[in-house]
């Protein structure tokens, strides 16, 4: 897969970003008694970060090089 040469490193980059998202201290910060649009910050944060990660992966994988 000659086209994939740059995908690998980018995916690893996203992996590291994901590790940052779903770990201390980000989680400790998000673990607060507040709400975003009525949803507790922690829940909102987790799903938003998760969705963002998926969008980024889809963007990297599906973009025609």
């Amino acid at each position: 897969m000659p086209k994939s040469s740059r995908k690998g490193p980018r995916l690893v980059g996203l992996f590291l970003l994901g590790c940052l998202f779903f770990n201390y201290p980000m989680l400790a910060v998000a673990n607060a008694r507040a709400t975003v649009l009525g949803v507790p910050v922690l829940y909102a944060y987790l799903f938003a970060a998760w969705a963002l990660l998926i969008v980024l992966v889809a963007f990297i994988m599906e973009r025609t090089e």
Binding site: K7, L46, I54
Partner: peptide
Amino acid sequence: VGFLPIYIGPTLMILLWW
């Protein structure tokens, strides 16, 4: 949120699947 790592873990792992 204790159920979530079960799905976030694979999401991360999949990035290394490549």
